[in-house]
């Protein structure tokens, strides 16, 4: 039997060693390349901040970064509003009903994003099903030009992002002890108050995790805004791809990526603070 103070094998030490391989993996294949990208933004083609002068000195770059953050923000809010009630309902059912409902959520992930974006093009176009319905039902006189447009972009992106909001929410809601709600009701809370004061605060970690996931994934969105959106939906990923792949200006591509990374990191830090004061999220892992 090893005593507590021995220098020999302990469970804690063992768990630490378990971390070595994944940390080395992340360090080698994630942190090191990112460091290289940041370094490159200052050294390619020559040492200095010329690339950042281009990013911040006029041109399309700042505007595109703003559009990217704005689009990601709108998509996150829409996803949260839609996913919350759905997650709530799914978290209350059990058994095969739950499997069925989960299947509806997950099944869309099996189709590629490109195909789903083209599918939305077909729905929204002037001779598409939506316009045919609107005209046939006499709601509008002539087909509406949805494409390219904000509505089409938001619908397309929300559709693709919804599962990533729903799944963390559902995971959190399923762990909420329902007897707490009953207890609140026994103490005189009506269902609305019980929800607002007990269930909702307990579900916040899921809402926070889902929002962070959707927001950050949306920042890197590429094909959906390109297909469904107009000039006003040019995303940072499109510009970075053009520079990195087509024009081979890796210095500028690196500077753009670094600015986007800084932006994401600062938004994440703000999120951690907010979640901490709200009492949940990644900051308070369960």
């Amino acid at each position: 039997m090893a005593s507590d103070k021995s220098t020999g094998w302990t469970a804690t030490a063992f768990y630490r060693w378990l971390l070595v391989a994944p940390l080395a993996f992340v360090g080698l294949f994630f942190l090191w390349p990112i460091l290289n990208v940041i370094l490159r933004s200052f050294t390619d083609p020559s040492l200095g901040v010329a690339n950042y002068e281009r990013v911040f000195g006029g041109g399309p770059y700042l505007k595109v970064l703003w559009i990217t953050v704005e689009t990601a923000g709108i998509v996150t809010i829409l996803c949260a509003l839609i996913a919350y009630p759905v997650a709530y309902v799914i978290s209350r059912v059990r058994g095969s009903m739950m499997s069925l409902m989960m299947a509806f959520v997950v099944v869309s992930l099996w189709t590629s994003v490109v195909i789903r974006s083209y599918a939305w093009m077909v729905v929204f176009q002037r001779k598409g099903v939506l316009n045919q319905f609107l005209v046939a039902a006499d709601i509008v006189e002539r087909p509406i030009s949805f494409l390219p447009g904000t509505l089409a972009v938001n619908v397309g992106m929300v559709h693709i992002m919804l599962p990533f909001m729903l799944l963390p929410m559902l995971a959190t809601m399923r762990t909420i002890d329902r007897t707490l709600i009953s207890a609140a009701e026994v103490m005189g809370a009506n269902p609305f108050v019980a929800f607002r004061k007990v269930f909702f605060p307990l579900s916040l970690p899921g809402l926070g995790a889902g929002s962070a996931l959707v927001f950050m994934m949306s920042l890197g969105f590429f094909i959906t805004p390109a297909l469904l959106g107009g000039p006003r939906h040019m995303m940072a990923a499109v510009l970075i791809e053009q520079q990195a792949n087509r024009l081979l200006d890796w210095g500028l591509a690196s500077a753009l990526s670094t600015v986007l990374l800084l932006l994401t990191t600062s938004i994440y830090l703000v999120y951690l603070r907010v979640m901490k004061s709200a009492g949940g999220g990644f900051a308070h892992g369960r």
């Binding site: 006029g58 041109g59 399309p60 595109v64 040019m234 510009l239 053009q242 024009l247």
Partner: peptide, 14 residues
Amino acid sequence: NSSEIVERFNTWIL
């Protein structure tokens, strides 16, 4: 001229 014109084109489009 790609680099310069692409930058102007993207700015114009926005």
